[in-house]
Design a protein around this nucleic acid. Structure first.
Length: 420
RNA sequence: GUGGGCGUAGCUCAGCUGGUAGAGCAUUCGGUUGUGGUCCGAAAUGUCGCGGGUUCGAGCCCCGUCGUUCACCCCA
């Protein structure tokens, strides 16, 4: 095999691509129901946008970006995440100067130069939302509820929601000071110390038991929340309870991007291996200003389409029949083929999904193809059907047939499908 | 970037202590006239990842390399 896809990319092809499409579109449908509007964004941006927005000290920026010089010598980076690009667009086109909050969504590929692993790809797909210009805790609850509704709409049951609050900048500074002091008192190896210096919160996320034990008594940011942050977080929790959305508070939650403040959340699915996060997000108080916008707060999330698909497959909740054609047409002979094309054209105008058997194959082979397509009904058109104007509408599951006229096929199929 | 597993037909894999490749599924055709699913029969498909080495002889042993996968790191 001479060519293959670049290392670690997720690509989708039949039959799995239809499940991928369904997962993505289902998530998007939930988002649109809350009035979020589409942002169709570039997948590359000026490198500086990410270094300033995401934070130069993050792993994502420091070692996982696909960065290159374009022909004009500009430093360009394939987007490793969606929020800063979306906010750049919001700011550039003044959406933050209209009615607030500005609510937008986007979807597409993202790129990180990581070592591939189960559920982790160098090109992966997300759908995300951003709501800019309101610090109402009800907005936090709505954003979380949208993601929750999306996963429920996929039929998922075995996922968890974890939330926490990272507080405001004063909260974070005070906590960081004490946390650093605590960590300084620990015996850590060089690499771990270096990680701690970059972002001390990272140690909360360490998978090694000995580190977990050492961190068990570390100061937690929730204990440092300012009054306003605590009230905000309490309000968010209250709204979520009212909505019947279950969650646990994880005071040790760590996000990989530096811009999060206040409410922060993650959706976790436990049957996906090491990469268990299927979505996450949070509030970002200084980010807009950081990349040249107004001092407005915002909140958003990113949902992993690849991982959501893996979760759907792990739970076995995919309904394959939803993707199958309504009707499979089998023409026998040249005149029948011409007629079949016309019939299929008309049926498709009435929103039916119709396939035709191509290639002059024998009836038996065509029937096998119809069976494999999963079509609910089959119609054979041959010389006798052309002369009589009547066809047998065959239901594949039961084998039952109904005699109908070719002219009334639209109505007959409509009736048959609605009776199921 | 670090570590482990694995690279044999389109897919999943078997292949003994080295003797020039096999199964199941999938594909196509057939089991007499225009009806699928089950069953039966047949056909087609491989530079055994690549390069080197050892050997009379390598899918199997050795070295290298690439790919892939899982985990660490990190995250969707």
């Amino acid at each position: 095999m001479k060519y293959q896809a670049p290392k670690g990319v997720s690509e989708y092809f039949p039959p799995r691509s239809r499940a991928f499409e369904w997962v993505r579109d289902t998530l998007i449908t939930q988002i649109k129901r809350s009035g979020y509007q589409l942002l169709e964004l570039p997948i590359f941006e000026d490198t500086e946008l990410f270094t300033r927005g995401v934070g130069a000290s993050t792993d994502v920026v420091s070692k996982e970006m696909y960065t290159f010089a374009d022909r004009g010598g500009r430093s360009i980076t394939l987007r490793p995440e969606g929020t800063v690009g979306a906010l750049r667009c919001v700011i550039e086109h003044g959406l933050d100067r209209g009615s607030l909050p500005a609510k937008v969504w986007y979807s597409g590929p993202f790129f990180r130069a990581e070592r591939p692993q189960a559920g982790r790809y160098r090109q992966f797909y997300s759908v995300g939302v951003e709501a800019v210009g309101s610090d109402d805790p009800a907005l936090d609850a709505e954003v979380i509820a949208i993601a929750h509704a999306g996963f429920r709409a996929l039929g998922l049951k075995e996922f968890r929601l974890e939330i926490t609050s990272l507080g405001d900048s004063q909260t974070r500074a005070a906590h960081r000071f004490d946390l650093m002091e605590y960590i300084d008192g620990l015996q850590l190896d060089g690499a771990t110390t270096a990680r701690a210096q970059l972002n001390p919160l990272r140690l909360f996320d360490d998978k090694r038991e000995e580190i977990r034990a050492l961190m068990a008594k570390a100061p937690l940011i929730l204990d440092y929340l300012s009054d306003s942050s605590r009230e905000h977080f309490a309000a968010v929790q209250g709204y979520l309870r009212n909505l019947g959305i279950e969650f646990t508070i994880n005071p040790r939650m760590v996000r990989g991007l530096d811009y999060y403040t206040g409410t922060t959340f993650e959706f976790i699915h436990d049957s996906l291996g090491a990469q268990s996060g299927i979505g996450g997000g949070g509030r970002y108080d200084g980010l807009l200003e950081q990349i040249g916008g107004q001092p407005l707060s915002g909140i958003g999330f990113g949902l992993g389409v690849d991982r959501a698909l893996l979760a759907v497959e792990a739970e076995g909740v995919l309904d394959e029949s939803a993707f199958c054609p309504d009707l499979f047409l089998i023409p026998l002979g040249a005149p029948a083929k011409a007629r079949a094309l016309m019939v299929s054209h008309k049926l498709r105008e009435h929103n039916f999904t119709v396939e035709i058997a191509f290639g002059d194959r024998q009836l038996k082979a065509a029937m096998k193809a119809a069976d494999k397509s999963g079509a609910r009904y089959v119609v054979i058109i041959g010389d006798s059907e052309l002369s009589s104007g009547r066809v047998e509408l065959k239901e594949m599951r039961t084998g039952a047939t109904t005699s109908v006229t070719l002219a009334s096929l639209v109505e007959a199929l409509s009736t048959a499908l609605s009776n199921q």
